[in-house]
Design a binder for these strands. Structure first.
Lengths: 144, 144
DNA sequence: AAAACAAAGATACAATAATACAATCATCCA
DNA sequence: TGGATGATTGTATTATTGTATCTTTGTTTT
């Protein structure tokens, strides 16, 4: 297949920002099946050089797609098309898991030798700590 | 016991660096008693191959653990769980692990769209249910 | 015209990978 | 026995790749 860079056309005079043009065209290629799960996208620098723009602009486009879950950007490794769970899959995953998560948390805590009450107490503390916006690193150790 | 490599799960999309994920999970296995004094860890290349990452990333994880005194890495020899941590170290390690477990439980719950309070409430119910013989699936969603 | 905002670029940084290296071990043969 | 040699293991250094932060620029708003 032709290099991705050659398939992306930028219109420097369009109202649409460059990074959105890139993101949109990658989306369309995925939708068209031209890009498939696991495919590696060009590095931000490669694509930027081809398109004669700054690599941060490509990085912004990739960031948008990453937020969508369409791709996976991995520092030091590269950028890849990511499996996108369907809405119903997400829904199914959501159904049962909260209790299972709690169950697993409890089991793992008990494996460490803690009682369910201690596990619950630490959870409360972690919640409290993450709730405070500016929390000086809470030290739970002394409190138990 | 299952090979260590199979027990380590990497999330390539997580914010947490891969080497930290590895180091943390090894810590947790030590805290849980799954790894004991003298046990040999996989070589950096073995583990890296299994995890499909570069062996330097494993080496970096091992280096972190070596600095903590938890393991001993020896060029040409391999990597081993170091002397049994003192009771105090073990206590701290377990405490840290428990907090990390709570943190992860919380994050995963929130990823599913639940509030910290809902997560805590479900945990309470699971605890209560595990006390009694059977636990009917509680449906907390409508209650909060 | 000045302020405010967003897009794009420049620069420094952090995580991962690639490559070459040094220490140790295992094997074999004199 | 012991030295040679190749394989294995962790280490050091450098390159690659995405990220964070700040600056510049152009457009819009007031």
């Amino acid at each position: 297949m032709k290099p991705l860079a050659e398939q992306i056309k930028l219109d420097f005079r369009a109202g649409e920002p460059l990074y959105m043009q890139i993101a949109r065209q990658v989306e369309q290629m995925v939708a068209a099946g031209l890009l498939q799960v696991g495919d590696q996208l060009p590095t931000v620098r490669e694509l930027a050089t081809e398109l004669r723009i700054n690599f941060n602009t490509v990085a912004r486009a990739y960031h948008v797609l990453d937020d969508q879950g369409l791709i996976s950007t991995q520092r030091g490794r590269g950028t890849y098309i990511w499996e996108q769970p369907t809405e119903e899959m997400m829904q199914k995953l959501k159904q049962k898991t909260l209790e299972e998560l709690a169950q697993r948390f409890l089991e793992e805590s008990q494996n460490l030798g803690y009682s369910p009450e201690q596990a619950a107490e630490v959870l409360r503390q972690v919640i409290a700590a993450s709730g405070t916006a500016d929390m000086a690193a809470s030290n739970i150790d002394q409190e138990m």
